[in-house]
Design a protein around this nucleic acid. Structure first.
Lengths: 213, 213, 213, 213
DNA sequence: GATGAATGAGTCTTCATTCAT
DNA sequence: AATGAATGAAGACTCATTCAT
């Protein structure tokens, strides 16, 4: 963003400042929604936390709903990115699944605010939620198809795999709901048996043998 | 409102009438929340639908939140009961799981109102949601423990089973979110491959072999 | 509204009180609009003057616009009635016209609030204004038709008479705009020559002879 | 924007550009007010239409009210000028009146924007409205005095003539309100009987004989 | 116990105006 | 002189809750 002319023209551009304000609003909104939930996130609270006037908000978003809709995409991307980098490329199969699960929990712990933003979005920002979900599903689909190609997964057709993806995502969410608790040290407190249970389900299924056997 | 049969002992007890009003409120609330969501369920809408005055509401509930909290227990019981009776006693193993899943979808289809009441409860009636969840978990625990006793399930300890329960419940919820659509004929429109995917996961797991193999 | 039973049941009915509140709001609105104009008539001002809470307003009107729309009908009726009774039945012809004009001015003087309510209505309560206008036009039409029947008016067909009515009403309005000034003693300060000018126009027209003569 | 003709002396004067911007604002304001009315004419709308920044506005006008006040004088002058040139110099007497009326209607049709600017001005730009009115009255006074001098008008003293002027102007306004409708071809759609009614009133008055006869 | 009018705190949103760049 | 971001006062409206009848 540096213009090449003035060797040390330091003052921020108007545009830069605007971008900054935009982000300040977004961050403030994330904070407030994360703590109080969408329903109790008034413009007043958000702008106050952002350190701007109420009116300023409306220079950046047309309605309150609009920030709500922007919130999940903004944070969701971070999360997806985090998981991607946190899971080593060479981990494969079910181990990859559990690694992803662990990474998800870790992210949640590190960003306690994200939980409500994500889970209340289904109610308060359904469009954003649907889109976020679609991104996750699409990402997963690719991963599972590669696993199929590698022969790690057998006996599921494409449609069934989609259903499976929904189950995997749901598991994530509910396990988080149940087990992730904010720890002051920021370390995941999800007990190890949750991970092993998940991994076992992935590898051997729940019921030893098909019941028609 | 007088029934013609019993010559006397006619008038309803004060208590009976009170009970009736209480239920009318509850039903109205269920209807309204089911259609508009908790956030848009004003006392005014509820009392109007119940055919009572706004003030009357406060003779039965202390706050709006209180009806919200009463809603899920009230309807959840019905659902649990429905599933119990819908699944034949002699179906066992993974087949039992899928039967339960089917029953759940069927119930949702038959009671479209229940969906929002249940899923928004996590946000708007967290206490009720937690309690409802606990009931489901407890019910499941018994069932799974019996399966373990019968030798249908092996290799999961008690803690792991709890995690599995969470996964099963989550799967239900998300699959419903994705696939249950209100059909006019009231029949479940959840595609069959969803059921089979679920069942396969239950029986063989997702990944063919433990990846450390 | 007196019930016949209780000889001296004095307390006001709920309904009576509601009616009273409704009228208090209407009167307050009339006062405020008359003084500050529609644009500056906030709900806050109105309710404050009416001595009620802001919320109470919305028990009687759904929107601010709704009071605005109710205002002119409410006051317009009074005005029409006043003019009717103020003009003796036996005054006929142009004299009747001038008597009506005088009565109008007198009413305006006595109800200074009415002026803005009426004239800003075209902008702020167009529906009400149109209706009010129609009532005036209809009233006038009857009167003029009777004058035609009596032979006092000749040479105007029905359509022309309607145009004339518009002119008469407009004259009223503009002359009021120009000449009616609030006098502390409440007496019309419209100078006599205004009346005579009007009367002359009614009787001999402005230009001595048709210009094609 | 460079015109090709004059080889040099090219750049617009600073003053010229300023004048240009000033007029652009005025035109934009006229457009906006004409379409949305004064009340809904925000600075934002006006500057947007004018193609300038909001802040720029305040280099040319101190307040919003100030443009509003400038609007009617700006456009009123055009109208007066139009009527003056549209009415042939040799038309006299009542025929001149009707010619002026026709011209007014034509102007209104050709400048649909003018209608609201003019009629809402009484409410939103009273000062401007009063001044505009005064100009019209003064113009009329001269005309009528000349008619008196020519003997076309008799029996009205100066004060009465002023009242008459108000009536004439009011008639214009209300007849326009009632009858002028925007026609796509831009031709006045005011029905002919309106003109004849007006002319009859001017020449013979409404009531055949003075009622004291 | 039922009623429904009254309350008033709280919300989102608009917009004229200011001012640093 | 132009810009456009920032401001904050003001306004309409909603709704859970109270309380006199």
């Amino acid at each position: 963003m540096q213009t090449s002319k003035p060797r040390r023209a330091r003052r921020k551009t108007r545009e830069e400042k605007a971008r900054e304000t935009y982000l300040r609003i977004l961050e403030a909104a994330a904070q407030v929604v994360g703590e109080d939930g969408y329903a109790d996130s008034s413009i007043s609270k958000i702008t106050q936390l952002a350190g701007i006037a109420q009116g300023t908000f409306y220079n950046y978003f047309e309605t309150r709903q609009q920030v709500f809709d922007a919130l999940l995409p903004y944070m969701g991307e971070q999360m997806v990115e985090y998981i991607r980098t946190a899971v080593p490329a060479d981990v494969q199969g079910a181990a990859r699944e559990t690694a992803r699960l662990r990474a998800f929990f870790t992210y949640l712990n590190a960003h306690p605010v994200f939980y409500r933003i994500l889970y209340e979005a289904e109610v308060f920002a359904p469009a954003a939620h649907a889109k976020h979900f679609q991104i996750l599903v699409d990402g997963y689909r690719g991963a599972l198809e590669r696993a199929v190609a590698r022969g790690e997964i057998e006996g599921y057709d494409a449609e069934e795999l989609e259903a499976i993806i929904y189950i995997l995502l749901s598991a994530r969410a509910y396990l988080a709901m149940r087990y992730v608790r904010r720890a002051d040290d920021g370390r995941s407190t999800v007990p190890e048996h949750v991970i092993t249970a998940y991994e076992k389900l992935m590898t051997r299924g729940l019921y030893g043998k098909p019941d028609h056997a």
